[in-house]
Simulated assay, not measured.
Amino acid sequence: MKKALSLMTAAALVLSLAACGSTASSAASSEAASPEAASSDAASSEAASSEAASETETAELSTVEPGKLIMSTNAAFPPYEMTTDSGEFEGIDIETAQAIADKLGLELQIDDMDFDAALLAVQQGKADMVMAGVTVTDERQNVMDFTDSYATGIQSIIVKEDSDIASVDDLAGKKIGTQRGTTGYLYCSDDFGDENVVAYDNGLTAVQMLNNGQVDCVVIDNAPAKEFIAANPGLKLLDTAYVEESYAIGVGKGNTELKDAINTALEELKADGTLQAIVDKYITAE
C-alpha cells in the first residue's frame, strides 16, 4: 500500500507542475481525494487477489471431471457404506466423503462396484478416491497414494454358535470365508494358505455360505461383522480380534494436491467434531 501511495503522490506532483493555472482550492481538493481513492483501489485489489487465489487453489485440484469428486466404493460394508431400501447410499464413509466434498467445493459422485474394482477405479483414473474400509498396505501403496487415517478397524471372526473354533489358533485347517481383495483375505491366505481361504464378492455372501455350512468361519471387519450377526441368529463373534488396522482414503498415484486437500479437510472435520459425530451415528460405543 505504501508503494501505491508513493506512486499516486508522484503523479499528483507531475499534474500540479503541468497545470500551473490551477487554483489552490482545486489542488487541495485533488490532494484530499487521492488517499481515499488509493485506499479504495487497494481494498478492491486485495479482495480480487484473495478471490483469484481461492479460485487458483481449487483449480489446482486434479479430478476426473471438473467440479466433481468421484468416489468408488463397495456399498456392502455396513456401517461404512451400504444402501437403504430406497437404493440410496449411507454410512460412515458416505457421510465423511460428502463432508470432504463440501469442504473442497466439489459435487460428490458415488460409484458402487466390487471391492477390487473400486481399488482399480482410482488406479485407472476412473475415480478420484476410493473409500470402502480400505487399509493401507505396502502392495497398495505401490499403485496409489493414501491420506491420513480417518478410522480404525478390527478384523474379527464370525462362527456358528456351536462351532469348535474359539480363537485364531483354531483356524488352522478350517475353511475360511472372506471378501475378495480385502486385508482379511490377504491375512488369512498368508497365515493359513490359499487352499483354506474362499473369497466372495462381498461379506454378506460369505456369511450366507457360513450359514449354509460351506465355510467354517468368516473373517471380516468388526463393524460389519456385528451387523451381520444381528441379522443372522445362530452366529456369534469371537472375543479375540484377529488383526487391528487403520482405514485411509486412496487417491491416484502422484495426485499430491488432491491428497493434501483431503487431509486438510479431514483435519478440520476431526477438529470441529464432525467426523466423530458421523462415527457415533453408526457405531454405538459399548
Rank of each mutant, 00 (worst) to 15 (best):
V198Q: 09
V243F: 12
A271T: 10
V198T: 10
A38Q: 13
R180Q: 10
F228C: 05
L210C: 09
A52E: 14
K3S: 08
N142Y: 00
G250K: 07
V159S: 02
E46A: 15
E51G: 11
P224M: 07
A223P: 04
A261G: 02
M113L: 01
S30L: 12
D41Q: 12
G252L: 09
K2C: 00
G250N: 13
D102A: 12
I220F: 06
I158F: 03
A132K: 02
T58M: 12
G203P: 00
P66F: 06
T83Q: 14
E36P: 00
A37I: 14
M82N: 13
D221Q: 14
A117S: 06
I92E: 03
A277G: 11
E95A: 09
E31D: 03
S6F: 13
K259Q: 12
E245K: 11
A265V: 05
A231F: 06
A121P: 00
Y150E: 02
E60V: 15
G203F: 03
A172D: 13
E31R: 07
V218L: 04
N222A: 14
K226M: 14
F192I: 03
K175R: 14
D201M: 13
Q141A: 08
S189T: 14
S25W: 10
A11D: 02
A118H: 01
V122L: 01
D85S: 15
Y185K: 11
N142G: 09
F228N: 05
E107D: 13
P66N: 07
E65Y: 04
G252M: 11
T152G: 05
E245R: 11
G91M: 02
A166D: 08
L275S: 03
I92R: 01
N222E: 14
F228V: 04
A206Q: 04
A117C: 00
A261P: 03
T147F: 03
D128Y: 02
L237D: 04
M71P: 11
D239M: 02
G203V: 07
I70K: 14
T183Y: 09
K236S: 12
G105C: 07
D128S: 03
L235R: 08
K175E: 08
E286D: 13
V207L: 07
G213S: 09
A76C: 10
A11W: 05
D190P: 01
C188H: 05
A199P: 10
M82S: 15
G125V: 10
D93T: 06
A97W: 01
G252A: 14
Y80L: 11
N212E: 15
I154Q: 03
T205Y: 05
N263W: 09
N263K: 07
A199Q: 09
S50M: 13
R140L: 15
I229P: 05
D201W: 05
L235T: 13
A230E: 15
I100N: 00
M129P: 01
T9E: 00
A4T: 00
I249W: 06
E88I: 11
Q123I: 10
L106M: 04
S29R: 03
D164R: 00
S40N: 12
T264H: 01
D272T: 11
A11S: 12
T73P: 08
A265M: 06
Q276S: 09
A225F: 06
N222F: 15
T135C: 03
A127R: 00
Q124V: 00
